[in-house]
Simulated assay, not measured.
Amino acid sequence: MSLAAAEFLERLRALVPEAESTVREHLGDNDEELLLDLLTADLRRLERVSHIWGEACGSLCR
């Protein structure tokens, strides 16, 4: 099964709404073109930051 870029982005936004700003920035930086390898790297960074922030918040909120 293959997805068109627009369909992929629509599903991504539905499943991971917190990635919206990352997706917007990626598209803006790349003339509205989806470059999947670069977007994947951006999303991995978002995930790492979210994970680190969650751990920090968890230890502060205990």
Rank of each mutant, 00 (worst) to 15 (best):
M1K: 08
S2Q: 09
S2E: 05
S2I: 07
S2G: 05
L3D: 01
A4Y: 09
A4L: 13
A4P: 07
A4G: 12
A4Q: 14
A4R: 14
A4C: 13
A5R: 00
A5H: 08
A5L: 13
A5E: 10
A6T: 06
A6V: 05
F8Q: 02
F8A: 00
F8D: 00
L9H: 07
L9Q: 07
E10S: 12
E10W: 10
E10A: 12
E10N: 14
R11G: 06
R11E: 05
R11I: 02
L12H: 13
R13T: 11
R13S: 14
A14L: 15
A14N: 15
L15H: 14
L15K: 15
L15G: 14
E18Q: 14
E18G: 10
E18C: 08
A19F: 04
A19K: 05
A19T: 03
A19G: 06
E20Q: 03
E20V: 07
S21R: 10
S21T: 09
S21V: 05
S21H: 04
T22S: 08
T22Y: 01
T22Q: 03
V23C: 01
V23D: 04
V23W: 00
R24E: 12
R24A: 11
R24C: 09
E25T: 00
E25H: 01
E25L: 03
H26Q: 05
H26V: 03
L27D: 04
L27S: 04
L27G: 05
G28P: 04
G28A: 15
G28M: 14
D29C: 12
D29H: 13
N30F: 07
N30K: 08
N30M: 02
N30H: 12
D31C: 03
D31N: 15
D31M: 04
E32A: 05
E33W: 03
E33P: 04
L34Q: 02
L35R: 04
L35F: 02
L36Q: 00
L36S: 01
D37L: 02
L38F: 01
L38I: 02
L39M: 06
L39Y: 02
L39A: 05
L39D: 03
L39K: 04
T40V: 08
T40I: 06
A41Y: 09
A41R: 09
A41W: 03
A41M: 00
A41P: 07
D42G: 06
L43N: 12
L43Q: 11
L43G: 01
R44D: 11
R44I: 02
R44Y: 13
R45L: 09
R45Q: 13
R45P: 04
R45W: 05
L46P: 01
L46A: 07
E47L: 00
E47V: 08
V49S: 12
S50H: 14
H51S: 11
I52N: 11
I52S: 10
W53M: 09
G54M: 11
E55A: 13
E55Y: 13
E55H: 14
E55Q: 15
E55T: 12
E55N: 15
A56W: 00
A56N: 05
A56M: 08
C57H: 14
G58E: 11
G58D: 12
G58I: 03
S59H: 12
L60E: 10
L60Y: 07
C61N: 01
C61Q: 08
R62T: 11
R62C: 01
R62I: 09
